[in-house]
Amino acid sequence: MVTIAVIAPGAMGSAVAALLHGNGARILTVLAGRSAATIARARDAGMEGVDEADLAGADFVLSIVPPAEATALATRLAPILAAAARKPVYVDCNALNVATKRGVAGVIAQTGAPFIDAAIIGAPPRPGGKGPRIYVSGDDLASSVALRELGLDIRPVEGGVGAAAALKMSYAGINKGLTALAAAMVLAAGRAGAAEALHAELAESEPELLARFARVLPDMVPKAYRWVAEMDEIAGFLEGDDGGRLMFDGAGRLYARLAAEGDGDEIARLRAFAAAAERP
């Protein structure tokens, strides 16, 4: 039986764990200090709570944490991995820019453990449905075959460590950047009294965009707090492009503001615009 440590049991991590467990893998995680709801979600996904020191006994360690926590996790686990006689494959699945991902790879390289750069694109897997695409890159991807055999949609990317990260940054920049752009302009139109006119023009000239905004704007609201750090990573990915970097610095500030607002006026305006877009 393949043993896989999944850190942490968030929405994506627990869903990936459930898929792997359902296909025969033993799943380890760390539950110390987690909320009752998180512990229940982990157990429902078939995850076993263990001490961090026990993670080194896994065949794989999948790091699926908020971007700001990825380096700290690798640094914290490094002594445990270094001491392990048999090294697990460390798979960093986080939304990190190329420089950050290579920094994590450098931390893990000092432990002697193999490293795979992974990028998750798509929603968490659901029972009976297709899971997200998991793009992988690195010096040796042979071990990732075992993850494919356990049900993950593993897709190799040429280019070594950083290639999967670059794909994630580029895709997320287009996808979530467009959502930020839509939110900013819908709110600006509303402040100027032109929201209805904007809706009418989009319905006539860009119906596909309007349909997309109807879906992604309300979906973004509960996730905005998680997207702030991702926008920071994308801005870092665009470090050599001042204009591009500033766009994503701004997107991060927008998402931070919306996250802090909760159910305030701006959120209500975005939801109202999306609801109007759904009506024929």
Rank of each mutant, 00 (worst) to 15 (best):
A72S: 11
L209A: 05
R212N: 04
P127E: 01
R226W: 07
L31F: 12
A95W: 01
A119M: 09
G244T: 10
R279L: 15
A235L: 09
G243S: 14
R34E: 10
V65Q: 05
E233V: 13
H21D: 05
I27P: 00
G33W: 07
L178M: 00
V107Q: 03
I120F: 07
L81G: 02
A42S: 13
E239D: 12
P125V: 05
V145G: 03
V91W: 00
A85V: 06
S35I: 11
A70D: 10
R76D: 12
L81K: 01
V186K: 06
P66H: 08
G49T: 09
A74E: 04
G49L: 13
A18S: 15
S143I: 04
L258F: 03
K87H: 03
A78W: 03
A17H: 08
A166N: 11
D117Y: 00
R41L: 06
A229T: 06
G240M: 09
A56C: 05
A192Q: 14
R155L: 13
G240C: 07
I267K: 10
L217T: 04
R86V: 11
S63A: 12
R102W: 07
E196M: 10
E230L: 09
V2P: 11
V6Y: 08
A70K: 11
P88H: 00
P280W: 04
V157W: 11
E204F: 10
A142R: 12
K176M: 01
A268S: 10
A123T: 07
F248N: 07
E149W: 04
G177S: 09
V145F: 06
A180Y: 09
A95I: 07
G10Y: 03
R148F: 05
M12Y: 00
P114W: 02
L254H: 01
E230Y: 03
E204T: 12
A40I: 15
E149T: 12
T100M: 04
N97K: 00
R43F: 04
V30F: 03
E278R: 15
M47P: 00
A164K: 08
